[in-house]
């Protein structure tokens, strides 16, 4: 019994050393898993398949956190309401003396874990995606009433070239130094998928 106890202690100590021996680096989140479909190249996709792939991205928290349905940005992998009750403000850039730019600049700050990109701000309320289905997001995205009067071409441009959108693939680290999770589709494939979908007439599947 005593011997077993000692052996157990030694084993657990060893285990502890192995598991917790190093305080840095912190564990990285698992590499994003690609959906089955994306294993084929995007060029071979039908517009419908491209839609699915695109939506894997657009429904990801890196996108939806800044497309809330209310006046509070979301943050983190659990999409909690932004700390300190930070608000949208009249022009989506925060309130008078608590602008997004009080803390967020044009690049990630990896010392502080504060993310940044040009024009860091919330999507306008009409572009709220939070709580919408994929089909609803797509409809809203194509509806000039909601999308700021963009043509399909302009929408594609926003989705594939806007720096704030593409930030999702370079999301930096959080306040704990832990890398933020990226969308589950690589950027290049996502861009191709958006273009394939648009070129195919931007079909929206039936609900």
């Amino acid at each position: 019994m005593k011997k077993a106890h000692r052996a157990y202690l030694a084993f657990s100590l060893l285990l502890a050393l192995l598991v917790f021996g190093f305080s840095t680096p912190r564990p990285h989140p698992p590499e994003p898993k690609l959906p089955e479909k994306s294993k084929s190249t995007a060029a071979e996709l039908t517009p419908e398949q491209a839609f699915d792939l695109m939506m894997e991205v657009l429904t990801h928290k890196r996108c939806v956190n800044c497309h809330p349905a209310d006046d509070y940005p979301r943050q983190g992998e659990d999409s909690h309401i932004h700390n300190f009750g930070v608000q949208r403000g009249p022009d989506n850039h925060g309130v008078a003396a608590l602008q997004c730019q009080t803390c967020h600049q044009s690049e990630n700050n990896n010392h502080a874990g504060v993310p940044g990109a040009p024009e860091w701000s919330l999507a306008p309320r009409k572009m709220a995606w939070q709580g919408l289905t994929r089909v609803e997001i797509a409809r809203s995205m194509l509806n000039p009433e909601n999308n700021g009067g963009r043509t399909l071409e302009e929408t594609v441009h926003h989705l594939t070239e806007h720096e704030l959108v593409l930030w999702a693939w370079e999301p930096g680290v959080d306040a704990n130094g832990t890398p933020r999770e990226k969308p589950p589709v690589p950027k290049a494939e996502y861009i191709k998928a958006v273009k394939t979908w648009a070129a195919g007439g931007a079909p929206i599947p039936e609900e």
Binding site: A97, L98, Q99, Q101, T102, C103, N109, A112, V114
Partner: peptide, 8 residues
């Protein structure tokens, strides 16, 4: 404008 200088 107010800026939090530790992260600027």
């Amino acid at each position: 404008k107010a800026v939090r200088s530790c992260s600027y």
